[in-house]
Amino acid sequence: MTGRLAPVELLLRSRGRFSASSRRVPWNQLVLIILATGSIYGFAMGSFSGLTALWGQSVVEPERRILQAIYSALKVPALLAITSAICLPSFFVLNTLLGLRDDFSAAMRAILTAQGTLAITLASLAPLILLLYCSTERYTVASISNGLMFFVATLAAQVMMRRHYRHLIARNPRHRVTLLVWLILYVFVATQAAWMFRPFIGDPQLEVAFVRADDWGNCYVKIFEAVTRFTSGR
C-alpha cells in the first residue's frame, strides 16, 4: 500500500515514525489525518435528512439539506480539536505535578495518535452509516447507530492509547493516573461539547442549522431534569 494511505497504515500499526519509540513525532500528518477522516465521517453523519429527502419523504427545505452534511463535516473535526484544547491545560498541569513532564511529548503523541485512530475508525464506518440511512427513516435509529459508531471508535482509540502508554507506565506507574484522568475528563467535556455543537445528524423535521444556538444549556442539567421529570411522573 503506497501513496496517500501509507501514513494511515503506519499510524494504525504504530510503525515507523508513528511508533511509540520514534523520536520524531509527525504532528502535521497527524493533524491532517484527523481533519480529513473526521470530515469524511461528519459528511456521512450529516447526510441523514438529505438522503431522507432524496427518498421522497416530505421534509423542510430539501435543497438546503446538503448544508447539514457540510456543517457536520466541519463540526466533527472541530469537536475533537476543541475538546482536546479544553482538556490539555489540566492534563499538562497534572503531568507536571506528578513529575511526568519529561514524558509529556510522548503523552501528547499518544493522545493525538488516539484521536487519529478515532477519526480513522469513524471514517471507515461511514459507508455503514450511509447504508443504514438508506434503510431507515427513523431519526432515533439514526442517532442510536451514530452513538454506537462513536463507541466503537472510542474503543479503537483506547487500544491505541494503551499501546502508546504501555512503555510510559513501565517507566513510571504514575502514568496510569494521568491516563485515567484524561479519559474521564475527555469524555466529560466531549459530551457537553457535542451537545453544544448539535445538530450533527439533523432531524429532518427541523430546520438546517450550524448550531442550535437558541437552546444551548448544559446537557448534564438537562439529563438531570429529564430524570427528575420521569421519576416524579410529570
Binding site: L125, P127, L128
Partner: peptide, 14 residues
C-alpha cells in the same frame, strides 16, 4: 461498504 472497517481493524491489530 464493509472493506474500510475490516482494513482499519486489521491494521489496528497489526
Amino acid at each position: 461498504v464493509t472493506f474500510p472497517s475490516l482494513y482499519v481493524f486489521s491494521a489496528l491489530a497489526d
